[in-house]
Design a protein around this nucleic acid. Structure first.
Length: 419
RNA sequence: GCGGGCGUAGCUCAGUUGGUUAGAGCGCUGGAUUGUGGCUCCGGAGGUCGUGGGUUCGAAACCCAUCGCUCGCCCCA
């Protein structure tokens, strides 16, 4: 029989896996992020992984690559087109619009898997995890400041080195249109040298040309009109204000930063690290004031961001805080239930101890090896002798120490409580 | 969707111009020590050489196809 494999680009995350410890790191990062969100009093929201395909067409945008070629879409048994969410914002806004909550202010966070049908590479998988924050019903200004404040805190708490936060402003509707027109005019003489995709993009979303990695195009862009020259003073003030507000993390105003999801307007940002390979950005977001109305709701000024959990885990340098570890060893030939009852009681006495119960009931040597392997600092051993004398053997496993002593169950409880 | 690299033990990898029974380290497991871990020594298990076809007296090696992984392009977190 053939073995069944996981799907391309979809990984298992097991804390126990030998391959470094990406899973352990991922889980730990998830916990740290939740702690940070809590300190800002942001509420959790969970929306379904499956949504109607039209939700993403109308939010993420028909012109975006995500919708054009990366959607995991299929028809359900009722022949409706449904899609595994490629990102988290659309579902949250759908929730707001569906329940007529546009006039309330809300701060939400979410965390979970997303799906995009792409060729996998470093830092990019078909199923990947994102955490996100949405500030709903907040006008431009303090909300921008607070999101960047969160980003800075994340970078500090996760001890991320060599990262830069890039910020930019896409302007308001009229300056955005003016600038788009200027870009179109500028590229007119170069049109013959552009490839098909870029020609299409020039029509549909000319700002996307700015952040190209194409070297030739970058050369052409050197003398192109600058977004900064079209921005209203308020936008430039905001960028400078944010840049000046945070000292411990590098913040750079990057006039070429534009974002791929069509719903962004106004302030946009992205954090990058050179330690990630080609997919250097590990977090990004921006303002999306028009999204709720695009989904049939009322206007709701909002800003949000998404964090790539696999990517941010890779560059985080947090230490896992080790609790006390101990091993509870039941040897061959003893009454299991009587012995195990003790382990059960011990656990309720001190929750700072990780008590591993080795359930093999084999030789003392084998059990001590297991205890050593799982880094236990001490072992509680129950064999026939101990059971007969109502004692437990406590053995110190730290380094070369060979100390051990027989104690009564009551004495063990006292020792365990103080570990 | 396009391009590069790679598939040999659970993991990391050797394997000579194509030549007999495919190896090492780590890990796992047992023993040296009747109930005492780490260090040391000795033993054991574990392989359709990704899969299918071809060339050849002979293929892990060469050719073709296919699947998978990986890195990049595009794009995004």
């Amino acid at each position: 029989m053939d073995k069944i494999r996981s799907l391309t680009g979809m990984a298992d995350y097991s804390e126990k896996s030998e391959k470094d410890n990406v899973a352990a790191k991922l889980f730990h990062v998830e916990n740290s992020l939740k702690e940070i969100f809590k300190t800002f009093n942001i509420n959790e929201i969970r929306t379904p992984a499956l949504e109607r395909t039209s939700l993403f067409q109308r939010s993420v945008g028909d012109f975006s690559d995500i919708v054009n070629k990366e959607l995991y879409s299929f028809n359900d048994k009722n022949d409706r087109s449904i899609t595994l969410r490629p990102e988290g914002t659309a579902g949250v806004i759908r929730h707001i619009v569906e329940n007529n909550l546009e006039s309330y202010s809300n701060k939400f966070w979410y965390m979970g898997p997303m799906w995009r049908y792409e060729r996998p590479q470093k830092g990019r998988y078909r199923q990947f995890n994102q955490a996100g924050i949405e500030y709903l019903g907040y006008e431009e200004g303090l909300a921008e400041l607070e999101l960047i404040s969160i980003v800075c805190l994340i970078i500090e708490k996760l001890n991320i080195k060599n990262s830069v936060i890039k910020i930019n402003h896409l302007g308001n509707e009229s300056t955005k249109a003016e600038f788009a027109e200027a870009i179109k005019n500028y590229f007119e003489p170069y049109k013959s040298s552009l490839d098909e995709i870029d020609i299409d993009r020039l029509e549909s979303n000319p700002l996307r040309l700015l952040d190209t990695k194409n070297k030739d195009l970058q050369k052409v862009l050197r003398n192109a009109p600058l977004l900064t020259d079209f921005l209203p003073k308020s936008s430039i003030d905001l960028l400078n204000h944010i840049k000046a507000s945070f000292q411990n993390v590098e913040i750079e105003i990057d006039p070429t930063l534009v974002r791929g999801l069509d719903y962004y307007n106004g302030f946009v940002f992205e954090a990058i690290s050179n330690d990630l390979g080609a997919q250097s950005s590990f977090l990004g977001g921006g303002r999306y004031d028009n999204l709720s109305s695009q989904l049939g709701g009322k206007i709701m000024n909002s800003i949000g961001m998404a964090i790539g959990l696999e990517r941010i885990s890779e560059i985080s340098n947090i230490e896992t805080d080790e609790k006390n570890r101990a091993s509870f060893i039941i040897l061959a030939g003893v009454d299991h239930t009587k012995a195990y009852k003790m382990a059960h009681e011990l656990r309720s006495l001190n929750e700072n101890v990780i008590l591993e119960t080795h359930l093999h009931c084999s030789s003392l040597k084998a059990e001590l090896r297991r205890a050593n392997k799982c880094k236990s600092q001490m072992a509680f051993i129950i064999g026939e002798e101990e059971l007969k004398n109502n004692k437990i053997l406590i053995k110190d496993l730290k380094n070369e120490s060979n100390e051990q002593k027989n104690v009564s169950y009551d004495e063990l409880i006292k020792i365990y409580k103080n570990l």
